[in-house]
Amino acid sequence: MSDAAFEAFVRRYQDLVYGTAVRLLGNPVDAEDVAQTVFLRAFQRFAQVGTSPAAPGWLKTVTRNECLNHLSRYRNRWQLFGDAPETALASADSPATQLEIDDRRRELAAALARLPDHQRVPLVLFHFDEMGYQEIAATLGVSLAKVKTDIFRAREALRRYLSEADAAH
């Protein structure tokens, strides 16, 4: 295996891995750590993964699993999958913050990142990874009802945020 081939592999897929991680974790620093771990695992299996057409799918699955492990390892599970207080979007209500942000997509991405973990993770799995409610419930080890409730609340929070952003512009 050549170093150049692995470097090209990282260049090709770094946005996919990092983007997936940052959406799930809502934190660029943690996402970079996870991306590094994922690429290290890819390096250890580079003979199989390097030229495989299944590489993007493999990377996405490993990234998702690493993110879920990271969340359950480093954060309090009571906050992750419990009913944490929903203060996450409160900071977006500040007029100063809204004036500083002028790009609607950036605003939405920021709002997504600010969602509590237990809402953002199932929402991202549903809308970006196209997983079903049942599959998400099994992946996160929570009830189907909780997944539906958390996703609904997350959508409501995003809708509120977007309405406020639209009104401000």
Partner: peptide, 12 residues
């Protein structure tokens, strides 16, 4: 898709 920061490649 959020772009990877330029620091990621050297880190990896």
């Amino acid at each position: 898709l959020p772009a990877a920061p330029p620091t990621l490649l050297p880190r990896v």
